[in-house]
Design a protein around this nucleic acid. Structure first.
Lengths: 351, 351
DNA sequence: TTGCGCTGAACAAACGATTGTCCTATGTTA
DNA sequence: TAACATAGGACAATCGTTTGTTCAGCGCAA
């Protein structure tokens, strides 16, 4: 058992509160130099660290944050988590990680558990539109920040990118390359990124006077498997698209596989654009043209926003929206991949 | 502020302890049915959840575990974490994630912080040989399990694979394919996996009567970048190896890049074998021949071992060593990737 | 009527730290 | 010499639960 204040007090023949004050460098403490020295020696000798639980109970602060995401094996969320930890760790916070696998029930039960644990705040990157869990979070007055996806327009502190703009850039790029039939592997209608990126896609088509053919939009979800299936549907159309804009890079990866299985060459037979610019994107062959967003910075900025709320005690509605940028690679423009110097790895096989 | 026992007690006109006993279904509680009903209704109405901090202080248990790894953006560790969470979450535990980036100092400071927080146990996958931090952990009598790497032979509870055997399988495979000059991208001499996999590599060579040429071994560390550099060194030798055994898949990925930059074909000019079988391995082109280990199960088994210690209160030295299995893919055997019925995709068709 | 055994709770002491207040010797000043 | 500071700590309440013990009242048997 680690040493407690009471034990130290007995050994130093002073009151526990005196030890506490010395350990915490309480400026209001008046103490004889000799006594202080004796106590400090004892603290060093025993490597005393206050019991975080007891401290948390008294101070009503645990110095623990939580990150709630769909799945950390998705590189996007792994990078996001690193951003959070890198932002929070230097300030003395530890971070709990909770995976929901996209299930609202698991999200809800995680959040309730976190609340009972009295974590100081939550970063939520697995939210849905009109998410009742987010409303619950608001009502509990527990500090939180939504990341990447939001729930109700403008109602919550948020860090993410301008999804409409990003999707627009991606689609415009394909239009400018001469594509006339551009498919969209769409996210879910229940998720902000799904809706907004689809909106950006549609807007870009409209801007260019291209028809909005609903058959060219297929819901893929956000994982590789769904991307492969959605791409398969579009590519097997009688009049298939010559280009695909995928709602995320992982979805695009699924599309890569589907295209290859059909014997289609990328980008010659079908061009593909993703979203997020995860590390994998630049290492596919051909490289994946995608919309770059600062994933790591999403995390660290969200942590800052959260800590700000925690430390001021004020609920916030601040939104931090980063401008996405198009990164052109070989999946849309032949030869666009930087040749040497960049350790790219060969592409994805079927399956 | 969430509701407390005392507040509920005032509302129900009973003593707080009575509420607590009803909430916890204390079997030794004798109570009038009417009173019980009144309290239960109140509990439901207010959605009372005991304050986890206060509970932790009293029960001396936090229901929090911690996972300490080098970097969660490495797919191996992300999968490992999922295993842990999937093992611990159903039993009511939450999991803290700490990244060390391979720094012993960060590892140390994380563990001290976790100790002060009184987490119930720690899973450590970033340890070194003769790691002082592990000795400290032992001395603190804090439950822990080492994963993937160990510190002192047989001294700690451990979950991992038989590294010598795995490396042997990999190297034997290359020998059987006819390779005579087999290089090794070695891990660090300060890490158990580095030492053991190198030992397995050397043993396989000796078994086959092949000379052990020290120039064919180059330290790569465990990341892609180091793998690329080490491969570069070996491949630029006057008499370069025709095959490489890399200490991890990420290292092998670096080797892929290096080979590709030199215009070498895989596996014709250089065959490559990795270790771990991360999801990425099967999706490279050509697929990466590698030593499969059950990563997710490492995590869930380690969580079980840890929970066992926590719940019995006994320190353990149980070791769970999985048998690794060789998975042959296209990076050593041409055509090994070809799915039945589908045309195989040329390795470096692009450009 | 006394005593006993229940029932149905209340009481109180932890768990370990933090922090506002109070107390007791010394000196200092008038 | 009496009043008063001041230094140097001690005291005690508090955070919200848990849990061993105690206790008042009531019914019932002797």
């Amino acid at each position: 058992m680690p040493v407690t204040l009471k034990e130290l007090a007995a050994r130093a023949r002073v009151h526990p509160s005196t030890i506490s004050r010395v350990a915490n460098h309480d400026p209001s403490l008046r103490i004889a130099p000799a006594t202080r020295a004796r106590i400090e020696a004892l603290l060093r000798e025993t490597e005393y660290r206050p019991n975080g639980i007891a401290r948390g109970l008294k101070l009503r602060q645990t110095f623990v944050l939580a990150v709630v995401i769909p799945d950390v094996t998705n590189p996007f969320f792994a990078a996001l988590f690193r951003g959070v930890e890198d932002g929070a760790s230097p300030r003395g916070y530890n971070v709990l990680l909770c995976n929901t696998d996209g299930s609202p029930e698991r999200q809800r039960s995680h959040l309730q558990s976190l609340h009972a644990r009295r974590v100081d705040g939550v970063l939520l990157a697995s939210t849905f539109l009109n998410d009742p869990t987010v409303r619950w979070l608001r009502s509990q007055r527990m500090p939180y920040v939504l990341v990447n996806r939001f729930s109700d327009e403008g109602q919550d502190p948020f860090v993410g990118s301008d999804d409409v703009l990003g999707a627009r850039l991606a689609t415009q790029h394909l239009v400018e390359l001469g594509h006339r039939r551009i498919g969209h592997l769409a996210g879910k209608a229940t998720v902000s990124t799904g809706v907004l990126r689809r909106r950006g896609y549609a807007a870009a088509l409209a801007d260019s006077g291209l028809p909005a053919d609903p058959r060219l939009v297929s819901e893929s979800g956000y994982a590789e498997e769904g991307g492969a299936q959605a791409a398969e549907r579009l590519l097997s159309l009688p009049d298939p698209p010559t280009a695909l804009f995928a709602v995320t890079d992982m979805t695009a990866v699924g599309a890569f596989g589907a295209a290859r299985r059909r014997g289609l060459r990328i980008p010659d037979d079908v061009a593909i654009v993703g979203y997020n610019d995860i590390p994998l994107a630049s290492r596919l062959v051909p490289g994946l043209t995608t919309v770059h967003v600062p994933i790591h910075e999403f995390g660290s900025a969200a942590a800052r926003l959260l800590l700000e709320q925690i430390e001021t005690g004020a609920q916030s509605r601040r939104r931090l929206v980063f401008n996405p940028e198009l990164v052109v690679r070989g999946s849309t423009v032949p030869g666009a991949d930087a040749p040497a110097g960049h350790p790219s790895i060969p592409a994805f096989a079927t399956e």
